[in-house]
Lab assay of single mutants.
Amino acid sequence: AMEMGLACVVCRQMMVASGNQLVECQECHNLYHRDCHKPQVTDKEANDPRLVWYCARCT
């Protein structure tokens, strides 16, 4: 999947907007926009540098 680069696995886009940054699952290393992931990634989750985030598939 490395050839995908830094794109969201849901929408396949790399564009990021304020409040909709890409977050990386620490287990599978897929990237998700906060708005694309279900459930939506919260501000607290996205902005906490100590948080280890896992996508819905890996939790």
Rank of each mutant, 00 (worst) to 15 (best):
M15Q: 15
C28F: 01
C36I: 01
D43A: 09
C58E: 00
A56R: 07
D35H: 15
A1N: 15
Q13K: 12
C55W: 00
L22R: 06
V52F: 06
K44I: 13
C25N: 01
D35I: 08
Y54L: 13
Y32E: 02
D43S: 08
E3W: 02
M15Y: 11
G5A: 12
E27R: 12
V52C: 11
V41F: 05
M14T: 13
H33P: 01
N20Y: 05
Q26I: 06
N30D: 15
C11D: 01
A7Q: 08
C58N: 00
M4R: 13
C36F: 01
V16R: 13
M14S: 15
H33V: 01
E3H: 05
V9G: 04
V23P: 02
Q26T: 09
H37W: 03
R50M: 11
V10T: 02
V16L: 11
L51T: 14
H37C: 06
V23R: 05
M2N: 07
H29G: 11
L31H: 14
D48K: 11
L22Y: 14
G19H: 08
L22P: 07
A46S: 08
G5N: 14
T42S: 11
L31V: 13
R50L: 09
Y32I: 05
N30K: 14
V10F: 04
N20A: 10
P39H: 02
Q21W: 04
R12F: 04
P49D: 13
S18A: 13
L51S: 14
V52R: 10
D43C: 08
A17R: 10
Q26D: 06
L22C: 10
T59N: 04
M2K: 11
H37N: 06
D43Q: 06
L6R: 08
L31I: 12
T42R: 08
D35T: 13
R34S: 12
V9I: 07
K38W: 03
L22M: 12
A1L: 09
E24G: 03
L31F: 15
Q13G: 05
R34H: 08
D48A: 07
R57Q: 10
T42I: 03
E45P: 04
N20C: 07
Y32H: 03
D43G: 09
A17E: 10
W53R: 06
C25Y: 00
Q13V: 07
C28T: 01
V16F: 11
N47C: 11
G19V: 08
H29A: 08
G5Q: 15
V23Q: 07
E45H: 06
K44W: 03
C36V: 01
S18N: 13
Y54I: 07
Q26K: 10
C28E: 00
N30C: 13
G5C: 06
R34F: 13
T42V: 06
A7F: 05
M4C: 11
T42L: 06
W53Y: 03
